[in-house]
Amino acid sequence: MESIIQSLISGIVVGSIYALIALGFVLIYKSTAVINFAQGELLMFGAYLCLTLVVVLKIPFWIAFVSTLIAAALVGLLLERLFLRPMIGEPAISIIMLTIGLASFLKGIIHVIWGSETLVYPSIFPTEPLNIGGIVVSQVYLYSVFFAVICLILFNVFFRFSRSGIAMRAVANDQQAAQSMGISIKKIFAIAWAIAAVVAGVGGILIGNINGVNASLGSFGLKVFPAVILGGLDSIPGAILGGFIIGILEALSGIYLDPVFEGGSKEVVPFIVLVVVLMIRPYGLFGTEEIEKV
């Protein structure tokens, strides 16, 4: 029983990080109709950069954290300006392919700069585990969930009340109408990429603190797909819920199915559930149904 609760908790923790990264996906998709396969690499970039700032340059974690996020935002802006803007108006498959190319490109650069061995964060959060009602939880986990939830709330507030947030929602809703109301679509696209990069950076730093930083972090980008699609590509609450569902599913299949299949079911079960859900609800749980006319 205790082990089930333990792994449920770790499922929630991982799920909260999935939710964060999924949020980045949804953001980009909502405002630019692009699926970003390079999200995992942006995450890797954030994790590596923050680690370098903390370990090599001995900058206090909080300052490193903030400056990493600023750097991530700049990278997001740069990528959008250099690679994505020329592709406006191209078919979706070309743009997907471009982000796949981008993923490969970024991975190459990151690999050249930081090498391939696993690097470990110095213990930033207190190491002794907390005991909550008989359940032992390591503090890194708590902080991760805390950060993730803070970010999720911040973004919800941003979309609801801030000027650019509302502008982004307008663009997502109807690009032409938004443009005729005086919203600069280019600016919105740029902001979307910057925010997505920042979100990925936060996710990367959190994951890096839990698992260490190495090249396999990039695969998080693929792992988050089930979460995003499950919730519906263009729904922010969907992304958050999808993230938690996938995280918990992974944890549960780790306990119940791994003994049967000798491991590895963690990667597959989310996808199987995904296909089943999609067969019943083709646009995910909360995605907007596209009504097409001839």
Partner: peptide, 23 residues
Amino acid sequence: NIFGAIREGIFGLVIILFLIFEP
């Protein structure tokens, strides 16, 4: 040592440039 990484990076870059200049 870093050849694999460079190759991966250039591979990605070629795809990107192709898509931008010869979609």
